[in-house]
Design a protein around this nucleic acid. Structure first.
Length: 392
RNA sequence: GCACAGGUGGGUGAGUGGUUAAAGCCAACAGACUGUAAAUCUGUCCCUCCUAGCGAGGUACGAAGGUUCGAAUCCUUCCCUGUGCA
C-alpha cells in the first residue's frame, strides 16, 4: 500500500478528509508550500513544522541539477537530506517544460533542457523523471507531463494533452517496475546510508511504514478546452492512479477561466481519490477551489510575494514597502495570531524590507505561510463542523 | 599667496560644440508576481499645461559675461572644493 485517502465529511461539493502517507497524515483540503530546491525559501524546517505544514513540494528538475539525485539518494531521499520528517511531493519537471520555454525542445520521447544554471544540456523523459523521483524519495510523485501554454489553439491543446497521456502511461509503467528502489527501503537494510555519516547530523528521518511505497499521481491537461479536459481525465483515469492532479492552470488565463476549468474537470475525477490542483492560488482562490472539491493545492505565491514585499492579510493585501507604513506601529494583520503579527510592527517590517535585510524575507514569508495555512485550517473546520462561516 | 585638479539633476557619475532634459548606477515612489531561471521584474523619478503624446512651454550642468546659427562642453573674470608648495 502506498497512500490511503479517506473522505470523511462532504459539504456540498467540498470534502474534508485524511491522506495517509509513508511520512505522516495529512488533513485535507491542504495547502502545500513550495520548496523547489529542498527548502521553502527563508524558512527553516523546524519552523515549518511549528506552522503546521503537513506536506511540502520539491522539484525534480532543480534537484536533479543540484545537488543531483545520487546525493539525495545517499541521504535516504529528500526527507533525510533536508531533515524533513513529514510528507513530501515532488513535481516531475513537467512545469519546467512550460516555464523554461527558451531553454528546451520537446519531442515525443522527452524534453531536452538547457540548464538555467550553467547552460549544459539534459534530457528528461517520463522514465528519467520517474527514476529521479524515486531517487528523491518523495511520498507522492507526479507523472511527467507537458504543461500546455496559454493561449493554445484546439489542435495544439489536443496534441499536448495526448502527449501527456502517453507520458502518463510511460510514467506509470516505469514506476511500477522500479518503485521498490525507493531509498527508504534500502536504508532499512543498510546501517548507514552515507559511509562515515549517519544521515544529517543528529537528525534521523522516520519512515512511518518502511514497507510503504511512493504514490504516483496522474495529471490532467487539456488547456482551457472543457471537452479535452474531460477526455484527458477519462484517459488518465483509465491508466489508473491513486490520485489525480489538474495541471496547466495559472498559466496566464483569466481567473474566471481557471475556476471554470477546475469545476468542470473535477466532475470527471473519481470522488474517492485525492484531487490536486497544481500551482494555485491566491488566498481567496484556494478557499474557492476547496469549496469546489479540491483536496490539495500548492503555490509559490505566498513565499515569492513575501520576498517581494506583498503580504496577505485578513483585510486584503499590504505592500509593506510602501512609505505609508514607515511610522505604522500596528501589527501587520490585527486578526492574525502568527508569530510575526504578535511581535512586530508594520514600521519595523517596512524598515527591514527597505534595508534589504534577510530577516524581512524570513518574517514576510512566515506571515504569508501562516496566513495560507490558517486559511486552509479554517476551511477544513468549516467543512467539518458545517458552520456558517465566511467560507461556506 | 602660488601651482595643479575639480565644480553636472536627491546621491554618485558619464558626457567635453549639434537627436542632451542630459547615459549608467544608487536612493525614492508606484506596480507586477499563482506545479519558483524570481532577495526578481516593470514603470515613474526638474517644473507647468493639455487633446496625455517618442506632446507644448519653461527652467537647468558653481556665478556673471562673451564667442557661435547652436554651449554642460570654447574664452574671460569671479566664487567655491581638494591636493601640493610657501
Amino acid at each position: 500500500m502506498s497512500i490511503e485517502f479517506h473522505v470523511e465529511i462532504r459539504r456540498n461539493a467540498a470534502r474534508a478528509g485524511r491522506l495517509l502517507t509513508p511520512h505522516g497524515e495529512i488533513e485535507t483540503p491542504v495547502f502545500m508550500p513550495v520548496g523547489t530546491v529542498a527548502t521553502v525559501k527563508a524558512v527553516p524546517q523546524d519552523v515549518l513544522e511549528e506552522l503546521g505544514v503537513q506536506i511540502l513540494l520539491g522539484n525534480t528538475y532543480h534537484l536533479y541539477l543540484r545537488p543531483g539525485v545520487e546525493t539525495v539518494r545517499q541521504f535516504c531521499g529528500l526527507h533525510g537530506f533536508m531533515a524533513w520528517p513529514r510528507a513530501i511531493l515532488t513535481d516531475s519537471g513537467g512545469f519546467q517544460v512550460f516555464s523554461l520555454n527558451d531553454l528546451r525542445k520537446v519531442t515525443d520521447e522527452g524534453v531536452t533542457f538547457r540548464s538555467h544554471l550553467d547552460g549544459s544540456s539534459h534530457f528528461f523523459s517520463p522514465e528519467s523523471s520517474i527514476a529521479a523521483q524515486i531517487g528523491l524519495g518523495a511520498d507522492i510523485i507526479m507523472a511527467f507531463d507537458e504543461c500546455t501554454e496559454y493561449p493554445a489553439d484546439r489542435s495544439r491543446t489536443q496534441a499536448s494533452m495526448e502527449l501527456t497521456v502517453r507520458w502518463a502511461e510511460r510514467s506509470k509503467k516505469y514506476f511500477e517496475e522500479h518503485k521498490h528502489e525507493v531509498p527508504w527501503k534500502k536504508a532499512s537494510s543498510v546501517e548507514s546510508p552515507v559511509s562515515g555519516a549517519t544521515n544529517t547530523g543528529n537528525w534521523k528521518p522516520e519512515t512511518r511504514n518502511c514497507n510503504a511505497n511512493q504514490s504516483l499521481f496522474g495529471i490532467v491537461q487539456g488547456g482551457m478546452d472543457l471537452a479535452l479536459r474531460k477526455e484527458s481525465a477519462e484517459r488518465t483515469i483509465e491508466i489508473g492512479f491513486p490520485g489525480y492532479a489538474i495541471g496547466g492552470l495559472s498559466v496566464g488565463e483569466p481567473r474566471e477561466r481557471t475556476r471554470e476549468v477546475i469545476e468542470a474537470t473535477l466532475e470527471h475525477l473519481p470522488p474517492d481519490k485525492p484531487r490536486y490542483v497544481m500551482g494555485v492560488g491566491t488566498p481567496e482562490e484556494i478557499v474557492e477551489y476547496a469549496r469546489l472539491g479540491v483536496d490539495m493545492m500548492d503555490c509559490v505565491l505566498p513565499t515569492r510575494a513575501a520576498r517581494h514585499g506583498l503580504l496577505f492579510t485578513s483585510e486584503g493585501r499590504i505592500s509593506i514597502k510602501q512609505a505609508r507604513y514607515a511610522q505604522d506601529a500596528g501589527p501587520l494583520d490585527p486578526n492574525c495570531a502568527c508569530r510575526v503579527c504578535r511581535r512586530y510592527s508594520r514600521a519595523y517590517l517596512r524598515h527591514l524590507y527597505a534595508s534589504n535585510e534577510v530577516l524581512a524575507q524570513v518574517l514576510n514569508t512566515l506571515h504569508n505561510l501562516s496566513f495560507y495555512l490558517d486559511t486552509m485550517r479554517r476551511v477544513r473546520h468549516s467543512i467539518r463542523l458545517g458552520e456558517e462561516s465566511c467560507f461556506f
